[in-house]
């Protein structure tokens, strides 16, 4: 393994560390999320250098004029080697960007890495700008702009928020395991998005809906948790569901979900309320079709990938792509699956 690969592994994976991508490893010195700590905006839109890991994570379900489905991802990860901010080359803050565009037949991926402290990548809380290289997400949280590029694609999008922020778990304190590992987690699931994708076959004007997740922690996974299956579903009746299933080494699961009413009222769901059962795997052994149930709200839906091969060939590989929802509720959404390498 060469140095670079090893460095990438640390960001945030270490081969021998626990859980997916090292997220289950205890690291001393970092801050730990606390229940009932109030959010402080706009500061909390920015980076929290004293936490080990943090992300700004946007996914979008898009349609072109001819009705073709597209998926889009824009993600900025922050990973800290130590809980200092530092400056210049010596800063321990490392940044990783993932961007993707998924079509029914293709999946375009790009990854960027960068150092904090020199201006190549970072996040400003106010006015809000998150960037790595030429990729940027910025705006006042009502109207925002977003762009990214890869060797074979690029996009330039505008976003307009149509609803409030949603806080998961206990007012944004999202528990991830029976042992109590947790993260701060809130979302803006109400973006309308419009713009253009530049693909190898040409420019495609698209519009649709987008969902932005903000999450930070220092040890979000339990030591026995190997990965997760995460769903963000937007139903045609205006309700939304965020649910995830954390997979544990003994074959059991820890689940958590948030039920979001069309008006933005949210209800956290305890472990076990949300259920996701794989229906079919793709050639790689990744379950791309699921039966998702939330009996308390009458949800019993089949979730199917628009493109089974939405594998993110990034330094930490995972599956991330747009899905369609049928059954008790109709709709669309995004599915992320980790730990299937």
């Amino acid at each position: 393994m060469n140095v670079k690969a090893l460095l990438l592994c640390l960001l945030p994976v270490a081969g021998h560390s626990q859980g997916f991508a090292g997220l289950g490893t205890v690291v001393d010195g970092f801050a730990v999320p606390q229940r009932d700590k109030p959010f402080d905006f706009p500061a909390d839109h920015g980076a929290h250098d004293d936490y080990r890991i943090e992300w700004w994570y946007l996914t979008a379900n898009l349609k072109s004029d001819d009705g073709t489905d597209y998926g889009l991802q824009w993600t900025l990860f922050r990973s800290a080697l130590s809980p200092d901010s530092g400056s210049g080359w010596t800063t321990p803050q490392l940044w990783m960007g993932h961007a993707a565009v998924t079509t029914p037949t293709a999946h375009y991926v790009s990854e960027r890495l960068g150092r904090g402290g020199i201006g190549q990548a970072g996040v400003n809380a106010d006015p809000f700008t998150a960037w790595i290289d030429d990729w940027e997400l910025s705006g006042n949280w009502n109207t925002m702009q977003m762009s990214a590029s890869g060797a074979d694609f690029s996009y330039d999008m505008g976003l307009i928020a149509q609803g409030p922020f949603v806080f998961h778990g206990d007012n944004g304190f999202s528990v991830k395991s029976a042992e109590g590992q947790a993260s701060y987690y809130y979302s803006q699931p109400y973006f309308d998005i419009v713009g253009a994708l530049n693909l190898p076959d040409g420019k495609v004007p698209v519009e649709g809906i987008a969902w932005l997740d903000r999450e930070w922690s220092s040890q979000p996974l339990g030591a026995n948790q190997t990965g997760w299956d995460w769903f963000s579903l937007s139903f045609d009746d205006g309700a939304k569901l965020m649910g995830f299933r954390l997979n544990q080494t003994d074959g059991t699961h820890f689940t958590s979900a948030t039920w979001i009413e069309p008006d933005g009222t949210s209800t956290p769901m305890p472990d076990g309320a949300f259920n996701a059962v794989p229906l079919a795997q793709n050639g790689q052994g990744v379950p791309v079709d699921w039966q998702v149930t939330l009996p308390e709200h009458g949800v019993d839906v089949t979730v199917e990938a628009i493109n089974d091969n939405a594998w993110m060939t990034t330094s930490v590989p995972y599956w991330e792509g747009p899905v369609t929802v049928t059954g008790s509720h109709e709709g669309r959404g995004y599915l992320e699956m980790t730990g299937y390498e």
């Binding site: 393994m1 060469n2 140095v3 670079k4 690969a5 090893l6 460095l7 640390l10 960001l11 080697l81 130590s82 530092g86 080359w89 010596t90 321990p92 490392l94 890495l113 960068g114 150092r115 190549q120």
Partner: peptide
């Protein structure tokens, strides 16, 4: 070199035991 942005492998250096990436990156 800047290992995060360097294209390809960084000098085909085989990592030996005891390499500490944090120390390498964190100055």
């Amino acid at each position: 070199v800047e290992p995060l942005t360097a294209p390809g492998s960084m000098g085909a250096l085989e990592m030996a035991d005891g390499a500490d990436v944090e120390r390498f990156l964190a100055g």
